[in-house]
Design a protein around this nucleic acid. Structure first.
Lengths: 207, 207
DNA sequence: TTGTAAATCGACATCGATGTCGTTATAATA
DNA sequence: TATTATAACGACATCGATGTCGATTTACAA
């Protein structure tokens, strides 16, 4: 369908493969997914697939990059320009656009956890996970600190620990969501309770 | 060393294998550990190992049973006899005997997460994880509810959601601990902050 | 239209892990 | 001591996943 290059088609092909791979990872998880699953889902041959990615890890990292670029930049951009309410910004960062806790969860969350947990003895993956963690941490810290300087947030709690707690909370929910059948996880209720906690910790009045 | 049975020796052998297996799982994690690792660590032959366990999953479940029997019963026993302070009981359940948050974490925690996450598409494992979750949940709920009836705890929050939040908090910490190098996780500080939260939610004054 | 670079293909060799099975060694019993 | 049940052994067949490579096909340029 597209030999001797064309760059357009190459990028298109790559995107197709990633799209298919995403479905595969959502269905099988990281460990149980195989290159064969991916090439079948993407309708490429074995050789075709290996032209674009050198192994499963490579495919997965490409997907991670995608999602980082998607979510991270939004918040970073908003942080640059002074924003009206850091509380809103914080909620958006935690819960996404909707700003309200709901019963949705990123379908890639389970395989993401798998990817990092199963790779925790691998130098490369560990480094990758660490970078990812601190990148996220930094964003939360920035929001909290700016809000504190602003006077919008109380200074009674340490921004670092608070930010870590937020990440930890999200991770905990993602984990339970990954293990339990969806209907057994009360994402919304737990999120609401956590928001209450944040309000208290940051001294925010209104919701 | 012990053919034609003796029951004593059989149980001893089994215990030896499990002990060795535990080390293996701590070192390699669940997925990357192999039966070969285990049989080498336990100094048994392949056939010897398969005499006691039919596969890796079987070995791991035996380890899980062990740890459940260890930790669960303590709390359950205490719940039967009326206890002086449910707050203390709650802390003991969360943080263990010491009752204070520290920088320790069960070394099996990472592989436990792995075991359940990678098995989330397996009917059997999913059921197992669910049972485990609800067993733990029930204990926390009982403690909270008894404390609430007692007047020791405030009733402003729902015991079910609160109990789930506790589990979620523990899971989140375990997850971060599994992914990050130990020195990058602030178990103690985050735990202290969480205890503050619980105090507020339960209306407990003193620490 | 023809030549060519390279994208695509799929058969194949390799590897590691698994579980089995016939053989051997040994603890209990008579 | 001889017998026997069975624990322990390790070689082996099997399987699935991986990554490679020579052959083939096709888009683009001349």
């Amino acid at each position: 369908m597209s030999p001797k290059v064309s760059k357009q088609h190459k990028e298109q092909r790559r995107a197709n493969i990633l799209e298919a791979a995403k479905d595969v990872f959502i269905e099988h998880g990281y460990e149980k997914a195989t290159m064969k699953h991916i090439l079948e889902a993407a309708n490429v041959s074995r050789g075709g697939l290996y032209q674009y990615f050198k192994n499963k890890e490579d495919v997965y990292e490409a997907l991670l990059e995608e999602s980082i670029n998607e979510s991270m930049h939004h918040t970073l951009d908003q942080l640059d320009e002074e924003v009206s309410s850091y509380w809103d910004l914080l909620l958006t960062r935690i819960f996404g656009k909707g700003q309200q806790p709901d019963d949705e969860m990123d379908p890639m969350a389970p395989s993401n956890l798998e990817f990092f947990i199963t790779g925790r003895n691998d130098q490369r993956r560990r480094e990758y996970g660490k970078t990812r963690y601190y990148t996220g941490l930094k964003i939360y810290k920035s929001i909290i600190e700016k809000g504190q300087e602003n006077g919008e947030f109380s200074k009674k709690f340490d921004s670092d620990i608070l930010a870590r707690s937020i990440i930890s909370f999200i991770d905990g929910l993602a984990l339970d969501y990954s293990i339990l059948p969806p209907e057994d996880v009360k994402l919304k209720e737990q999120s609401i309770m956590f928001v209450d906690y944040l309000k208290m910790a940051l001294g925010v009045d209104q919701g």
